[in-house]
Amino acid sequence: MTAMGVEVSKLRRKRLWLTVLLVLGFELLWIVAILTVSLSRETTAPHTMGYAIGQASQVHAIVAPILATVVVSRLAAMEHDGAMLPVLFAANQSRGSLFLTKYAVAATISTTATVIVVAAVALVAGGQGVPADPGLMIAWLLGLVLANLGIVAIQLLLALLFQRQAVTLTVGIVGGLVGSFAGFVPPTIAAFIPWQYPGLVTPVRMEQTGGTITGFPLVDHLGVLIALVGVVGAACTAAGTAVFAHRVSR
């Protein structure tokens, strides 16, 4: 698809990879730190992959929206800075096509980052003697990939509509940071905030008694949550494309 090729070639010398490396690298460092420290100190709860996922998910739920927001902002700012949107549209690129190709690039980057994070969790946990649990990992990975889609769609729409990137960055980051309150936001509320989806699709939840962690049992209705997330993500993508395509002015 030439539109994709064009989008990728626009990234030359932009050092987007550096920004991604900064955020992703930091997340990986943090996950490694938290997993090694918590697993080595943990005496009560069983060392399952669910435990690892539960711990790592607290980190990922905060960073994933940040990464998606920042990447999308960079992609949109590129066009705003050069005042290229009117030029592209005059050159007969359809607005829908622009939205979808940028979406595809951002989604690819997010998905790749997610895969790296999940792989890292598996590796580090395995290194600490945690037995492998491919089914759980795949469920988590699937959920996370779908969860990203909605975030990328909404953020892209905001980033392309508003030239002031401060707007999209504030929305995306605050939306993600809100989840840091009280560890997990209850699913009923999180279902309405797409930026909370990476946390929502965590296949396990923390069980505590009197302040100590006792385990990370599976969440009920995980399939429903993932489906919800996927549907909302798809809806956001469609809506985002439609809204952007119908804007009359640049």
């Binding site: 550096l18 920004t19 900064l22 955020v23 930091f26 460092l29 943090w30 730190a33 938290i34 420290v37 905060i62 960073v63 940040i66 927001t69 920042v70 902002s73 960079r74 700012a77 990137q165 401060a166 960055l169 980051i173």
Partner: peptide, 23 residues
């Protein structure tokens, strides 16, 4: 120069303080 990267740096560095406290 990039606004987004700027914010990313500030955010990562801030969240990093949690990591510092941990490690």
């Amino acid at each position: 120069r990039s606004f987004a990267t700027n914010v990313a740096i500030g955010l990562v560095a801030s969240i990093g303080s949690l990591m510092v406290t941990l490690v």
